[in-house]
Design a protein around this nucleic acid. Structure first.
Lengths: 192, 192
DNA sequence: AAACTAACGGACGCACCCGTCCGTTTCGCT
DNA sequence: AGCGAAACGGACGGGTGCGTCCGTTAGTTT
């Protein structure tokens, strides 16, 4: 009845919203954050106006589209933290996060320089980074991670990883895997 | 006399050409290859048409503007090759090239994915890479460089280095220095 | 010094992307 | 079925960068 609040969202609106998010994930993954909004709209089969009505800015759209990736990121770190061997856990984080970022061209940009408007995104980001710091402390105590490792090194690695440009996704994935290997070797304590 | 071939280049043309190259170096270094051509023209104090007359495409302009950097790159590698200790030479190459690329936002892009039109640039590039391969062989023989190092690893490092974005040049330089340190550690033979 | 011509640069047309307006369609409720 | 409102999307105006045309300027030659 009339008492019901205007929580009723029209079915086509919900439908389009989901399709736009799907399209955004595909487009941003393939072309990065620089992809035109029109491209997302086209792929979603909606007009530009509809896209902008649901997501007023590209930042907002990206934040919501990358929410899955962000959750995946958090899971990766939690898995690493749960690993019985802290060093192995640390390595798995590096490997899996590099892989994740290699698969998705736009995610790194969103992650490393979180937008001002992406508040909740930023919160999850901070929480994840805190967990990484905790894992790093454990790995240092185990004696396998360099004592001078700092959290900024991880950001550095992510930024560097994002610099790996390649034509085919397969090549990019391979390069990213090699890169993760190099990085892990760099972070391991040396007997020197 | 009339017998003289049309080798006479008007003085203002030569003057402008040099100024355009200077401006291009400054602009590309500061803003990367994405900087508008107009910006180069503005800084050079010429009109857009003059710029395009001298350098029909951005590729050609970039190639000529980065010729100095390319030479510097070659010199760095030659210095490394001349070092009595191959491993020390290898390290100096990594450090100095990372520094060079950090100082110049556009150079890496030009270097790692040389344009089709940049023929002579590509030649010098190939020659330099050959020298790096030679240095790597020596460093491997000395026992300090990992046996499984491949030339593509250097390209990988350069691409990764270019991914390091930062607001201030100073921050970027510092991050790049740290990155070079990590990379060197990754390439060193480990007792494992 | 005068004329010839190379070189200059303001202005133009084209293409792309952004974000918004408004007439039209479609959903949901009665 | 019919009505009101919410949602849609084609079309618009604003901004930016690229590459080119053509009337004007200025160097060079005799």
């Amino acid at each position: 009845m009339a008492g019901r609040l205007s929580q009723t969202v029209r079915s086509d609106a919900r439908y389009n919203r989901e399709h736009i998010l799907d399209a955004a994930r595909e487009v941003f993954a393939a072309e990065g954050l620089n992809a035109p909004m029109r491209e997302v709209a086209r792929r979603a089969g909606v007009g530009p106006a509809t896209l902008y009505r649901h997501f007023p800015t590209k930042e907002i759209l990206a934040t919501e589209a990358f929410a899955d990736q962000m959750r995946a990121c958090e899971t990766i770190v939690e898995d690493g933290l749960a690993h019985p061997d802290p060093w192995q856990g640390f390595c798995s984080v590096i490997e899996r996060i590099c892989e994740l970022h290699a698969r998705d061209r736009g995610f790194t940009a969103a992650f490393t320089s979180a937008f001002p408007h992406a508040v909740d995104f930023g919160e999850r980001r901070e929480r994840t980074l805190k967990s990484v710091a905790k894992l790093a402390r454990k790995a240092k105590r185990s004696g396998h991670l360099r004592q001078d490792f700092v959290l900024d090194d991880l950001i550095l690695v992510l930024m560097a990883n994002s610099g790996i440009h390649a034509n085919s996704p397969a090549t990019r994935a391979a390069a990213s895997r090699r890169f993760a290997e190099l990085v892990i070797r760099a972070f391991r304590t040396s007997p020197l």
